Amino acid sequence: VTVDIKGMEYHFDNPEEAKKFAERMAKELGGELKVENGTLKVE
């Protein structure tokens, strides 16, 4: 699973970990979490 945090890509084997990480980063950065082509994106 790929997580894109404002252009920086992180790769996770575990989808649950990827989702938790993306949600935490969205909250910390005040960004919006989206799913695009199987990639979790925070913008």
Rank of each mutant, 00 (worst) to 15 (best):
residue 1 V to Q: 07
residue 1 V to I: 12
residue 1 V to S: 08
residue 2 T to E: 01
residue 2 T to M: 09
residue 2 T to R: 10
residue 2 T to F: 08
residue 2 T to D: 03
residue 2 T to L: 11
residue 3 V to F: 00
residue 3 V to C: 07
residue 3 V to Q: 00
residue 3 V to P: 01
residue 4 D to L: 15
residue 4 D to W: 14
residue 4 D to S: 15
residue 4 D to N: 14
residue 4 D to M: 15
residue 4 D to Q: 15
residue 4 D to V: 15
residue 5 I to F: 08
residue 5 I to Y: 08
residue 5 I to V: 11
residue 5 I to R: 01
residue 6 K to P: 02
residue 6 K to F: 15
residue 6 K to D: 15
residue 6 K to Y: 15
residue 6 K to Q: 14
residue 7 G to I: 02
residue 7 G to H: 03
residue 7 G to Y: 04
residue 7 G to N: 04
residue 7 G to Q: 01
residue 7 G to P: 00
residue 7 G to W: 02
residue 7 G to F: 04
residue 7 G to A: 00
residue 8 M to V: 14
residue 8 M to I: 14
residue 8 M to Y: 12
residue 8 M to D: 10
residue 8 M to E: 11
residue 8 M to Q: 12
residue 9 E to V: 13
residue 9 E to K: 14
residue 9 E to Y: 13
residue 9 E to W: 11
residue 9 E to P: 04
residue 10 Y to M: 06
residue 10 Y to N: 03
residue 10 Y to K: 04
residue 10 Y to S: 03
residue 11 H to N: 07
residue 11 H to R: 07
residue 11 H to L: 09
residue 11 H to Q: 08
residue 11 H to P: 05
residue 11 H to Y: 14
residue 11 H to E: 06
residue 11 H to D: 04
residue 11 H to K: 07
residue 12 F to N: 00
residue 12 F to Q: 01
residue 12 F to W: 00
residue 12 F to R: 00
residue 12 F to M: 00
residue 12 F to S: 01
residue 12 F to Y: 01
residue 13 D to F: 06
residue 13 D to Y: 05
residue 13 D to Q: 08
residue 13 D to N: 10
residue 13 D to C: 14
residue 14 N to A: 05
residue 14 N to M: 04
residue 14 N to C: 12
residue 14 N to W: 04
residue 14 N to H: 07
residue 14 N to F: 05
residue 15 P to E: 13
residue 15 P to C: 14
residue 15 P to H: 12
residue 15 P to K: 08
residue 15 P to L: 15
residue 15 P to W: 15
residue 15 P to M: 15
residue 15 P to N: 07
residue 16 E to G: 07
residue 16 E to A: 11
residue 16 E to T: 10
residue 16 E to N: 07
residue 16 E to C: 14
residue 16 E to R: 05
residue 16 E to W: 10
residue 16 E to F: 08
residue 16 E to Y: 09
residue 17 E to N: 05
residue 17 E to I: 04
residue 17 E to D: 12
residue 17 E to M: 06
residue 17 E to G: 02
residue 17 E to Y: 03
residue 17 E to R: 02
residue 17 E to L: 05
residue 17 E to V: 05
residue 17 E to H: 05
residue 17 E to C: 12
residue 18 A to T: 00
residue 18 A to I: 00
residue 18 A to Q: 00
residue 18 A to C: 08
residue 18 A to G: 10
residue 18 A to S: 01
residue 19 K to F: 15
residue 19 K to Y: 15
residue 19 K to S: 08
residue 19 K to T: 10
residue 19 K to N: 10
residue 19 K to R: 14
residue 19 K to P: 02
residue 19 K to Q: 13
residue 20 K to V: 08
residue 20 K to G: 08
residue 20 K to A: 13
residue 21 F to M: 02
residue 21 F to E: 02
residue 21 F to G: 01
residue 21 F to V: 02
residue 21 F to R: 00
residue 21 F to H: 03
residue 21 F to W: 08
residue 22 A to L: 09
residue 22 A to M: 08
residue 22 A to E: 06
residue 22 A to N: 02
residue 22 A to V: 06
residue 22 A to D: 02
residue 23 E to W: 00
residue 23 E to I: 03
residue 23 E to G: 00
residue 23 E to F: 00
residue 23 E to C: 08
residue 23 E to L: 02
residue 24 R to G: 09
residue 24 R to K: 13
residue 24 R to A: 13
residue 24 R to Q: 12
residue 24 R to E: 12
residue 24 R to D: 11
residue 24 R to L: 11
residue 25 M to W: 10
residue 25 M to P: 00
residue 25 M to I: 09
residue 25 M to C: 12
residue 25 M to V: 07
residue 25 M to S: 01
residue 25 M to L: 08
residue 25 M to G: 00
residue 25 M to T: 03
residue 26 A to W: 06
residue 26 A to C: 13
residue 26 A to V: 10
residue 27 K to C: 14
residue 27 K to F: 10
residue 27 K to P: 01
residue 27 K to R: 13
residue 27 K to S: 09
residue 27 K to I: 12
residue 27 K to L: 12
residue 27 K to A: 11
residue 28 E to S: 09
residue 28 E to K: 11
residue 28 E to P: 02
residue 28 E to W: 12
residue 28 E to H: 12
residue 28 E to G: 05
residue 29 L to N: 04
residue 29 L to K: 03
residue 29 L to Q: 05
residue 29 L to R: 02
residue 29 L to S: 06
residue 29 L to F: 08
residue 29 L to G: 05
residue 29 L to E: 03
residue 30 G to A: 07
residue 30 G to N: 11
residue 30 G to H: 11
residue 30 G to F: 07
residue 30 G to I: 03
residue 31 G to I: 10
residue 31 G to V: 10
residue 31 G to Y: 12
residue 31 G to M: 12
residue 31 G to N: 05
residue 31 G to P: 04
residue 32 E to W: 15
residue 32 E to F: 14
residue 32 E to R: 14
residue 32 E to M: 12
residue 32 E to N: 13
residue 32 E to S: 14
residue 32 E to H: 14
residue 32 E to A: 12
residue 33 L to V: 15
residue 33 L to D: 04
residue 33 L to I: 14
residue 33 L to E: 03
residue 34 K to F: 12
residue 34 K to N: 08
residue 34 K to I: 13
residue 34 K to A: 07
residue 34 K to R: 13
residue 35 V to S: 10
residue 35 V to T: 10
residue 35 V to L: 08
residue 35 V to K: 06
residue 35 V to Y: 14
residue 35 V to F: 13
residue 36 E to Y: 04
residue 36 E to G: 09
residue 36 E to L: 10
residue 36 E to N: 09
residue 36 E to W: 01
residue 36 E to I: 14
residue 36 E to V: 14
residue 37 N to Q: 06
residue 37 N to S: 05
residue 37 N to I: 04
residue 37 N to Y: 02
residue 37 N to F: 03
residue 38 G to I: 03
residue 38 G to N: 09
residue 38 G to L: 01
residue 38 G to Q: 04
residue 38 G to S: 03
residue 38 G to A: 03
residue 39 T to E: 08
residue 39 T to F: 12
residue 39 T to V: 15
residue 39 T to N: 12
residue 39 T to W: 11
residue 39 T to M: 14
residue 39 T to L: 12
residue 40 L to Y: 07
residue 40 L to N: 06
residue 40 L to E: 05
residue 40 L to G: 06
residue 40 L to K: 05
residue 40 L to T: 06
residue 40 L to Q: 06
residue 41 K to S: 09
residue 41 K to T: 11
residue 41 K to W: 08
residue 41 K to V: 13
residue 41 K to M: 10
residue 41 K to H: 11
residue 41 K to L: 11
residue 41 K to P: 06
residue 41 K to N: 06
residue 42 V to K: 03
residue 42 V to S: 05
residue 42 V to L: 05
residue 42 V to P: 05
residue 43 E to L: 15
residue 43 E to F: 13
residue 43 E to M: 14
residue 43 E to R: 10
residue 43 E to Q: 12
residue 43 E to D: 11
